[in-house]
Amino acid sequence: MIAIGAGIAALTGAGAGIGIGLATSKAVEGIARQPEASGKITSALILGCALAEATAIYGLVIGLMIIIML
């Protein structure tokens, strides 16, 4: 049961993966359209990834806690 719980908790990575993938595709499109703005687009992309990764990390932490503490 513990293992199943931890496995489900690890599924939150899927959301983050999809979200960051979409964001990167839009960012690459933007850069292709206007290469001069590539600096700004890159920094916005990195910021967005860091924020989106947070929810995936929540899942990771909960999975770890389940394994280690329960």
Partner: peptide
């Protein structure tokens, strides 16, 4: 809470 857990989670992970 979200600020704290984001930071903590990243470093812990």
């Amino acid at each position: 809470l979200s600020l704290c857990m984001r930071l903590f989670g990243n470093v812990l992970g």
